[in-house]
Design a protein around this nucleic acid. Sequence first.
RNA 1: GGUGAGGUGGGUGAGUGGCUUAAACCGCCGGUUUGCUAAACCGGUGUCUCGAGAAAUCGGGACCGCGGGUUCGAAUCCCGCCCUCACCGCCA
Length: 417
Amino acid sequence: MLHGLKKRNWKDDQLSIINRILELDDTRRRLQQEIEQCQASLKKYATEIGQLYKEGKAQEAEAAKVEVASIKEQMKAPENELREVKTELENLLLEIPNVPHKLVPFGQSEEDNEVYKAWDKPLPELPQDALPHWELAKKYQLFDLELGTKLTGAGFPVYLGQGARLERALINYFLDRAHQAGYKEVSPPLLVNADTARATGQLPDKEGQMYYVERDNFYLIPTAEVPVTNLYRDTILEESDFPIKLTGYTPCFRREAGSYGAHVRGLNRVHQFDKVEIVRIEHPDNSYQALDEMLEHVSSLLDELELPYRIVRLCGGDLGFTSALTYDFEVYSAAQKRWLEVSSVSNFETFQSHRLRLRFKDGKKKRLAHTLNGSALALARIVAALLENNQSPEGIHLPKVLHPYTNFPLISPQTTP
RNA sequence: GGUGAGGUGGGUGAGUGGCUUAAACCGCCGGUUUGCUAAACCGGUGUCUCGAGAAAUCGGGACCGCGGGUUCGAAUCCCGCCCUCACCGCCA
């Protein structure tokens, strides 16, 4: 475990909190035993006193009460100490991220991520006058960022006409494909309470990333992962319930403080975007096979959309707090000449299920299940790449697989808006 | 938003201070009987946590929506909160 945490570039003083936790846990046990012993004798006295009163031995009962009072007095100190120890312990435990899987490479930042599956065909080349997607959006009136700013603020795009229809087409296409792959569709609430946000690990780590509705104490979901995975909070499954495969479309809301400039132009980074998520709850023995299946699923979507992509394995420095192993899918955006992250597929092992109290019966024992999820897919950047890579003098050609969904094969000024 | 009624185990549901170790019924698991199925009968049937043990298991503690309080003793009494249902108001 310590070796694993070093992959997250933990310094020695951070590692020492592990020792502190072990120490606190010992104290906790000792105090708990001490208190429970007292409780046991209090229980005995209570029945005894009841008995004595019934027999009319009031004097003896009074004597016993004095005894009880002294035990209670004696319990006070350990009780207070236990409360403190428990609080400190819980706070420390919430600070511990998931332990990276053995495949996770060492590294500081996304620079150190490992290309797991490269794009082995030539990358598309566009003519010199090729436009980035935010220019194309203006040209064909597909979405409008300034209108969004008027309604809300920066980072809330308004999709219009063919842009809005393309958005809807992609959602339906992704949902249908997930359905075909055996995922059960869920349409969850977009606001969740703090318990829900904590169980999937958004709280306390990503507090600042979520929009918060103070009046009702609700959080706007940053991803469908949160409500969908939480369907199984406080659940005990049978082994025969596996695998559990869920999918859901939701808008996702992210405050995304930080990072400005060209990289966040257009749809590259927005506060609200649409996403179809796939979630799996698996037997620990099968979770890595499930992860591979999810990679296959996402790959097949990108193949069908005819987008060039690569898969990278996140290094320790880039790995999310809750994840044990994450693969990112990056689509090549020809006009921007850069790779855009469009999907992130992760195995959380027992990290979330511990907080979810999501277990299954393994014979007589109960064990924590494994949870996984992945974007399949995130819309905004897919739209960006589709627009840029498929631009041509006559318009933007959409991949065949989308035609039944859009009812138009080409985006052009001539197409019905 | 207003008024009222409620929240008990997998389900229904009894339980107004100690006889509750939460009744009873249903469900589920095991067994007996029986050509098979069914029925009947018998036994078992929660979660968390601490300790002992190689394990089966055994022992302690907590848990009747959540959190406090009263009491020697709380499912039961008191206070706060959350939620559900019904009706009214508003409304896609």
